[in-house]
Design a protein around this nucleic acid. Structure first.
Lengths: 124, 124
DNA sequence: AATCAACTTGGACTGAATCCAATGCGGGGG
DNA sequence: CCCCCGCATTGGATTCAGTCCAAGTTGATT
């Protein structure tokens, strides 16, 4: 546990939004000016493999990092502005995939992305 | 409708797999050697806005293009090799998102990605 | 045959992410 | 207490996907 990793963890923990790696980096820089982008990427990668943080790839722009890895949830994305909210649907989508549709895969996870237009963009 | 667009459409129609733009391009080149990457991107973009083809962004590598746009379906992705299969779950995930979880969004679409390990990779 | 708009081309450019060689740092053994 | 080794960090170069743009073609219309 180095100063750099602590700073990255703090940034993620501080704001419960979905930051890009570059956003994490620029916030980290304010706390530890000499931290490099490579280290942010490394640390984010480790946090992801530790299961502490989730990668979200809702658009094909930058990946976003979701610190809320422990409570299962899905995402609601605005098609206009890209805003992301965590949502908790009822029901279990995994149960909706019958064995005949699994093609021998060992299915371990499911990711649901709802798309729509947020109130802000709808008003504009 | 130009020769270039016909070729792109043929490539997509020919193999019902999920190709990247570059894969579409290299297949298109075998049929029409002077076709450029830019044209493939343009044409894919148009097909997407016409609703003839779907973009799939399962990982953060290249977008993939799914010619099966007319029958609603979702995707099952192998976490190891990246293979993608179309699947048809039962139930309607849109119905599983209560109004209280919509935060005022006009929700129009939902995309479900199942992740697991395919039989091939499980064997290896 | 002339005109003009739409399409295509290819090369430059951008943004995101990764790679890599060099440097720095910290903790354990002497 | 100091040195040394290994791991972490750095930052610059590189890759990869995708977009942009100015110039060149094509083809439809008249």
């Amino acid at each position: 546990m180095t100063a750099q990793r602590r700073v990255v963890a703090e940034v993620l923990d501080g704001e419960h939004v979905h930051l890009t790696a570059d956003e994490v980096h620029s916030r980290a820089v304010t706390k530890l000016p000499e931290i490099s982008r490579a280290t942010v990427y490394n640390t984010l990668g480790e946090l992801v493999s530790l299961g502490e943080v989730l990668e979200v790839a809702t658009d094909k722009r930058a990946k976003r990092y979701d610190p809320n890895a422990h409570r299962p949830h899905h995402h609601l994305v605005c098609a206009r502005c890209g805003a992301i909210r965590d949502v908790h649907p009822t029901g279990d989508p995994l149960a909706d995939l019958p064995a005949s549709e699994r093609f021998g895969f060992t299915v371990s996870d499911v990711e649901v992305t709802y798309r729509g237009v947020c109130p802000n963009c709808a008003a504009a």
